[in-house]
Amino acid sequence: MVETYQRRSALAHLGLVARAASSSTAGAGVIMSEVPHRTIVNVRGTASDVAFSSAVQTATGLALPSAANTVSNGGVWQIVWLGPNEWWITGPDGEAESLIEALRANFAGQHAIACDVSESRAIIALKGAKARDVLMRGVSLDLHPRAFRVGQCAQTGLSRANVLLHLVDDTPTFEIYVLKSFSDYLWQWLEKVAADFNLAVEA
């Protein structure tokens, strides 16, 4: 099979690793980085159906998030709420095929599906004291720490791209999932806004 160095992340053309090497994060208001590859499996099923939820739990060791707009986190896997019958299971790179196999086996006899979408999204991590100041320039959601808490997620618009926002920790660190075709646009846009908040790039 092909050597892994031939693999290119969505934002590889921006040379972020080289930029990060020559950029200091000390005193930065905002730090941006690309999370290059992650397994993302789209799962559909009936939340109220115990057979379905336990099928997911058997495969991931995780319960479906009980509340809308939240993420359940189990170390290896995370389950991201997308809608009333739709979730993402995210985890380490390269695990999509085996996860889907396990899920499909557990789904036997149910109307539930799993579909690999790992390669469709780029992930931009945006963190630092001024991360919210950057995001509020493109997101109409209330991102106040009392309104949007750690572990919450939301699908929404960020400037003119559709994204999934996930507040990972109270640094705060946001992970922004975006279709790869929009990732160059979104990175440039974020970078332009973040320029007013002392931006650093991290590998």
């Binding site: 809308a68 707009n69 809608g83 009333p84 109409s140 959601l141 939301a154 699908q155 929404t156 618009g157």
Partner: peptide, 11 residues
């Protein structure tokens, strides 16, 4: 009904 209150431009 699923995500809560959002701006019209999301719809």
């Amino acid at each position: 009904p699923y995500c809560g209150k959002r701006d019209e431009h999301e719809f």
